[in-house]
């Protein structure tokens, strides 16, 4: 194809569509469609409290999803983020309850727990060269078991919002005289921008993309492949820890042994947002949009009378469509 040859059609060549990306435009369209559809079907959906609960569900999934975007861009995956998030929340919350650790420090511990888990994954994948699926499936199990053992198998309740130690809950949901403001969204948005710039305009970000695009080519270009491959998993771990903070702030109690399956909500969001399962391509903005599709479905479907099992089916179908788009896009290249 010569340099002067026009590709695509009128839609894909539109300058706005080109900058934002076709898949993201489609996902935004889906979000708008879902919001209108649910509002039209159910008056209850139109309430402010529903909006707040959509956001509530989105925080911890968004954080996991931002993190796991990086392993996915390298062509791998991180399955340990769900149980890792719960284990981090359990462990740190237990320290508050049992050791009277100040909540501020506990949140730090929660994040560090995630980073440690990320380091374990990074070691298995980048140093031992284990397949990411197996490596993180193993650490997913380890995290689930470890979380339960560390807290003696009991549920952990972080301090309630009204108590002195409960200030951290307003990081995500500010109670302004009875009106709940989803401030967490601003936080997430800021993180999306920071990580977007990191991915697209910093050296580590570019090298992570390179690892996913063509590992051997990256190596021959003198890039320390193992280092950047490892970093992708450590970033994922860091965001797992952050997700633990959001999870603790959103829910009353954390139950040991849970968390498995939550990683799939996040990964589904990333894929819907246009990140390629084959690696080499992905955007953080797309990830956030993808998570919102998941979040809307999860919150909206009960309003039109479709309960959990139906949600699973519809989410599955949405995921098949998203992966199909990814596969056809790759086939064209």
């Amino acid at each position: 194809m010569g340099a002067g040859v026009k590709k695509g059609n009128a839609f894909t060549n539109n300058p706005i569509v080109k900058t934002v990306g076709t898949q993201k435009i489609v996902v935004i369209g889906v979000i708008i469609f879902l919001a209108i559809f649910f509002s039209w079907m159910s008056p209850a959906f139109r309430q402010y409290s529903t909006v707040v609960s959509i956001f509530d569900f989105s925080y911890y999934v968004s954080l996991m999803a931002i993190g796991v975007t990086f392993p996915l861009i390298t062509g791998g995956v991180d399955l340990s983020i769900g149980t890792g998030m719960v284990a981090a929340g359990l462990f740190a919350g237990n320290l508050v309850n049992q050791q009277n650790l100040p909540v501020g420090l506990a949140l730090l511990v929660c994040i560090l727990f995630g980073v440690a888990l990320g380091c374990l994954n990074a070691f298995s994948v980048a140093k031992l060269n284990l397949p990411p699926f197996i490596a993180t499936l193993s650490s997913m199990m380890i995290a689930r078991g470890l979380g339960s053992i560390l807290v003696g198998g009991m549920s952990v309740t972080w301090p309630a919002g009204a108590t002195e130690q409960g200030w951290f809950r307003s990081i995500f949901r500010l109670d302004a005289n009875g009106t709940l403001i989803p401030v967490g969204f601003i936080l997430i948005l800021a993180l999306v921008i920071v990580m977007s710039v990191f991915l697209n305009h910093s050296r580590p970000g570019r090298y992570i993309i390179s690892v996913g695009s063509n590992k051997e080519a990256a190596r021959l270009s003198g890039i320390h492949v193992a280092k950047w491959h490892a970093l992708a998993y450590i970033i994922s771990g860091f965001f797992t820890g952050l997700a633990g903070v959001a999870y603790a702030a959103t829910f009353q109690g954390i139950v040991p042994g849970t968390g498995a399956g939550l990683e799939l909500d996040a990964i589904a969001g990333v894929i819907i947002g246009g990140t390629s399962m084959k690696g080499g391509y992905g955007t953080i903005g797309g990830t956030l949009l993808g998570v919102f599709v998941m979040s809307l479905l999860k919150t909206g479907l009960p309003f039109i009378g479709l309960q959990a099992n139906w949600q699973q089916i519809i989410t599955g179908i949405v995921l098949i469509i998203a992966v199909f788009i990814d596969v056809t896009r790759n086939a064209k290249k």
């Binding site: 710039v197 305009h201 910093s202 050296r203 570019r206 993309i209 390179s210 996913g212 695009s213 063509n214 051997e216 080519a217 990256a218 021959l220 270009s221 003198g222 890039i223 080499g280 391509y281 290249k333």
Partner: peptide
């Protein structure tokens, strides 16, 4: 190299300067 060692997802310029990107501060 005989086998092309290209990062197909990056641009031409990004490929040419891979590993020695031109920086402005911390950003590429």
């Amino acid at each position: 190299h005989q086998e092309l060692n290209m990062l197909n997802h990056l641009t031409v310029a990004q490929n040419i300067y891979i590993g020695r990107e031109k920086m402005s501060g911390k950003l590429i």
